[in-house]
Amino acid sequence: MNTAVGDELPPLQVRLSRADLVRYAGASLDFNPIHWNEAYAREVGLPDVIAHGMLTMALAGRLVTAWTGDPAAIVEYGVRFTRPVVVPDDADGALVELSGKVGERREDGTLRIDITAKFDGRTVLGKAVALVRPR
Score class of each variant (00 low, 15 high):
27 A>G: 05
135 R>V: 12
109 G>Q: 10
113 I>A: 10
6 G>S: 13
110 T>G: 07
61 G>P: 03
21 L>M: 03
132 V>P: 05
55 L>D: 06
80 R>I: 13
82 T>P: 00
133 R>I: 10
27 A>H: 00
8 E>R: 15
73 A>W: 01
117 A>F: 06
11 P>M: 06
124 V>M: 12
20 D>Y: 04
81 F>N: 14
47 P>D: 00
133 R>M: 10
18 R>T: 09
79 V>K: 07
8 E>P: 02
49 V>G: 00
101 K>N: 10
99 S>L: 04
121 G>I: 03
75 V>A: 07
77 Y>A: 03
132 V>R: 06
73 A>L: 08
110 T>K: 10
22 V>F: 00
52 H>P: 11
102 V>D: 14
35 H>C: 00
124 V>L: 12
126 G>S: 01
13 Q>E: 15
40 Y>K: 05
48 D>G: 07
89 D>N: 14
31 F>R: 11
61 G>N: 02
93 G>C: 04
122 R>C: 03
67 W>I: 01
73 A>C: 12
32 N>F: 06
20 D>S: 03
2 N>G: 11
76 E>Q: 08
11 P>A: 14
17 S>R: 05
28 S>A: 12
98 L>Q: 04
30 D>H: 04
11 P>E: 13
81 F>Q: 13
107 E>N: 09
29 L>M: 08
129 V>E: 11
18 R>H: 00
74 I>Q: 10
113 I>G: 04
52 H>A: 02
30 D>K: 04
42 R>E: 14
119 F>W: 15
128 A>R: 08
94 A>H: 09
23 R>N: 06
65 T>L: 01
81 F>W: 15
76 E>N: 15
94 A>G: 13
114 D>A: 09
7 D>Y: 01
11 P>V: 11
135 R>G: 15
88 P>N: 07
83 R>L: 00
61 G>C: 12
101 K>G: 13
75 V>M: 02
92 D>S: 13
26 G>T: 01
130 A>C: 11
123 T>W: 00
106 R>G: 08
104 E>P: 08
71 P>L: 12
58 A>D: 03
129 V>G: 06
14 V>Q: 14
31 F>M: 07
72 A>G: 14
86 V>Y: 03
109 G>A: 13
33 P>S: 05
27 A>C: 01
10 P>K: 05
15 R>D: 01
99 S>H: 12
37 N>H: 13
88 P>A: 07
121 G>N: 02
24 Y>S: 00
22 V>Y: 02
55 L>S: 02
128 A>K: 08
11 P>L: 13
31 F>T: 06
105 R>N: 14
54 M>E: 05
57 M>Q: 12
107 E>V: 10
18 R>V: 07
105 R>C: 12
12 L>V: 10
42 R>D: 09
77 Y>Q: 11
106 R>M: 12
87 V>H: 02
129 V>P: 13
50 I>K: 10
5 V>H: 12
87 V>E: 04
99 S>C: 11
34 I>N: 11
105 R>F: 03
8 E>Y: 05
76 E>W: 14
15 R>A: 08
10 P>E: 15
2 N>H: 13
